[in-house]
């Protein structure tokens, strides 16, 4: 554990908490892509199957459980509790275009051809693109609530901080994981456009609005 890794995890946790409290207190999931949330639930489910096979640390277990439970809680809020507020007409990204390539790539490029390892790899590939339906939704409506922007910023920062963690680990331990690094870079790059808008608009108190 190093400072980048810890900040990355906290940033991830913060993103999830921002999203849950936004939906819960506004009693609305307007502007939130349910499809991205479905992909995240698939990501955590496929990745954290090792909860029952290996013990890493109490921290590791607790965070995994929190990420899993919160992803399903988010789906519950969107699809059941506040389903009337779900903006499905703007959430039209075809997720099979992300799921299928992630499955094929995981079968072809992995560290070991075993069920758990392929599922882990699949989750890494899928996570790197899972935000696309949400970004697509923002671009389609041309705007995002500030709270949604904060959520996206925290979520995007997490993999960026993880890249620093990978640098640090390579530097100090000589340990690296090419699959996680490359996917993490792809994931972070996808947020770059958004990061720019966040810094130039949202942080200056303006609403995130895309030029027409």
């Amino acid at each position: 554990m190093n400072i980048f890794r810890l900040l990355g995890d906290l940033s991830h946790l913060l993103a999830i908490m921002i999203l849950l409290q936004k939906i819960f207190y506004s009693r609305s999931c307007a502007g939130i892509s349910a499809k991205s949330q479905v992909l995240f639930a698939i990501v955590y489910t496929a990745r954290y199957l090792d909860l029952v096979t290996v013990y890493v640390s109490l921290y590791n277990i607790s965070m995994k459980v929190v990420f899993l439970l919160s992803s399903y809680a988010t789906l519950y809020l969107i699809y059941l509790k506040f389903r009337a507020t779900y903006d499905r007409n703007h959430d039209t990204f075809r997720i099979e275009f992300l799921l299928l390539p992630a499955i094929v790539l995981a079968l072809l490029i992995n560290h070991q051809f075993s069920a758990l390892e392929v599922l882990w790899t699949f989750s890494i590939y899928l996570e790197s693109v899972a935000i696309l339906p949400q970004l697509f939704m923002v671009s389609k409506t041309g705007e995002a609530e500030s709270i949604t922007s904060h959520y996206l910023f925290a979520l995007g920062s997490y993999r960026g901080l993880y890249i620093l963690n990978w640098f640090y680990r390579y530097w100090t331990e000589g340990h690296y994981d090419l699959i996680a690094i490359v996917a993490g870079v792809v994931q972070t790059v996808l947020y770059c456009d958004f990061f720019y808008l966040y810094v130039t608009k949202v942080l200056k108190g303006k609403k995130l609005q895309l030029p027409a």
Binding site: V56, S57, N60, H111
Partner: peptide, 10 residues
């Protein structure tokens, strides 16, 4: 098959 160490990252 190669040994894959437990993954620490989340």
């Amino acid at each position: 098959t190669a040994f894959i160490p437990p993954k620490d990252e989340l």
